[in-house]
Write a protein that binds this DNA or RNA. Structure first.
Lengths: 209, 209, 209, 209
DNA sequence: CATGAATGAGTATTCATTCAT
DNA sequence: GATGAATGAATACTCATTCAT
């Protein structure tokens, strides 16, 4: 029985099939965590939704916490992967890039998955210190992506030179993250409407005067 | 033979002493709910922090849910009581009123209590339908207070006539509510700084162009 | 967020082994319910008598009530299965059949198991409405079996035509059911003696005059 | 503070008022014990039905068990007091006396109070050894009263000389005690009808042949 | 006589986890 | 890969009882 040095857990072959199974479980888990929270979701709930017994989860994840971690990790990485090119796109103006950035994030938040909410503050406490560090790092990286844009904008003169870039990023992220709480697909506003309004008001609010 | 949970309890007289005890318990509970969430906080935790045994809590509250409800109720009422006069102050301009409103709310959020977070979305699901209704009503009332100001501003021409007042309210509330997650008393920004920056950016963002 | 009690559980396959385990638990439970009553018997008591921990009971039964129900169900069905052919045996006279019926029931009551007591009135209140209905139906069926015999006897002239058959059934059942409270295996009277005396007196009491 | 030697409990003056209060509590308790059983009835239930707080019960009874005991004691004494003269009435024939005895008991059982049920087997286990002894003694005395009649009847030739008098007493008592489970005041049979049928069948069943 | 506060032991039930199969 | 059985710790809640007021 081969054990990986650091953790004491069995190493598994990472076949494609196995990866697919894990992804399916993670997807189910995210939905349930979103709806009922980490503590409010039992492994039995997850297993039942997957169509097997709870014990079987341990064939894929070492613990519930590990499942949470991998779920967060995956989602955040996907988010960051989408936003990274926008932040790095030096051929567009900061205004265009910030618009795009907001658009994509709102879109992800409200359409592709309403699942990111938990990624952030509420459930992070349930992670082990090591995992917590990694997720916070990813989250910070997300902020830095947006920060890049805002600071670029200050340099180019698109945004007022005296604005607090970090705070602006927090503001925008706050607005976007909370959309999941009140957004309704059947409501008056589409994700696009929301993104547009955020851009309108914020870009106007931070442009040079 | 199932007894309906939490209903079979005598109501006790509301003496001053009793009210003080209840308030003390609620205060402790809010802190713990804030830190560990509703489910993450056991009645034993609360009781221990109060210096007595868990069973004694039932001399004051019919159930854990009732405790959550009363805590939310009390805090939200206090918040609304502070903001109501600002919204109603017709002698000041909407700009002044919105500034004041934001200032007070940020202040409450970050100084007086960092406790309002839970009032909002995350823990509401644990309330009984009846209690949920009441808390949501209070929360909506808070939004309406801010909405009054924004709409007044549109009439007076202080704010752009084409802005979506409801959305602006959501934006501002989102920003304020999330401050509790990242604010640090020892940090670079004071609550006042935060309030000022929010006002600057938002008021600039929504003024007539 | 209240989860409906005892419903969210997977049904397990009914292997022979599993059935045996359940039967063993039920047997233990019946003994304890008999001795201390349903409420007076804790799941810990039952588990301890089974040699495992209380939590494990939930691998077999969704709730304590379900355990009570299955216990009652099983025992009553066994009883009815034994009495059914007697009631239906048209080749014997009603007198012979009633004698046989009483004999068998007394025998079951006092020898095979003293466990039927609880089946009847005292613990039925602890069943859920649905389960209660089913158990009462089974119990009523038992009464109907005896009723058949008594009414047959009125037709054949073995029993007085003016007797109240339903009441006679209640009388006989009452006598039999209460034997468990006073019967002692070491006592003066054997189950057979008891059955004989009941038959003597009742058959004499209801014969045509 | 005067303590009674044996028990360590305060002696109370037995004013008329106090006795009335105790009787009222006992009456309430009997009803609740009847409906929900001894364990199923909490002191809070009793206190609430009495209109005061649970703690106050301890001004009248040393414990819940004491309350159960006094309730049983009182009811059984009342029953016995009514039946004693019938058993002792040497001027009537045993047949008349047994009829009367059955009539009175059925009447008490079904009209005056349906409360005697608990006196018997089901709740006796909750008594302390000392109290249990006393209640069983009273209950046995009841049986002896009926026994007297039946044995008198054997001597006078009213009843068959070879019947088992003790068993007959048990039979009759069993029938009467179980009436409370199925009797309905609105039903087809009145208490008087029931008493008459029992007498008819049993007296016929035990008369000399 | 009455009560509110307090408690310790107890209740059914849930849950993450382990392990042999 | 999957599962049923088992567990130990935890949870909200109940209850009889005590005691100071």
């Amino acid at each position: 029985m081969v054990k990986s040095a650091g953790t004491g857990y069995k190493l598994r072959k990472n076949t494609a099939k196995r990866a697919a199974s894990k992804a399916a479980i993670i997807s189910v888990a995210i939905d349930l965590f979103w709806e009922n929270g980490y503590i409010g979701t039992s492994l039995r709930d997850i297993a039942e939704a997957c169509g097997f017994e709870a014990a079987n989860l341990y064939n894929y994840f070492q613990s519930k916490e590990q499942l949470l971690y991998e779920a967060m990790q995956e989602e955040l990485e996907r988010l960051v992967a989408l936003l990274e090119p926008v932040a790095a796109d030096v051929r567009s103006t900061p205004i265009e890039r910030l618009k795009k950035f907001i658009e994509i994030h709102v879109e992800i938040m409200l359409v592709i998955g309403r699942r990111y909410k938990m990624m952030y503050d509420s459930e992070i406490r349930h992670l082990s210190p090591v995992h917590k560090k990694r997720i916070v790092a990813l989250r910070d990286y997300y902020s830095e992506l947006m920060l890049t844009i805002v600071e670029d904008g200050k340099k180019t003169g698109d945004f007022a030179p005296d604005i607090d870039a970090k705070f602006v990023v927090l503001m925008i992220a706050s607005i976007i993250m909370r959309t999941v709480f009140w957004f309704s697909p059947k409501g008056r506003l589409s994700p696009r409407d929301i993104a547009d309004m955020v851009c309108d008001i914020i870009l106007e609010g931070i442009r040079p005067r």
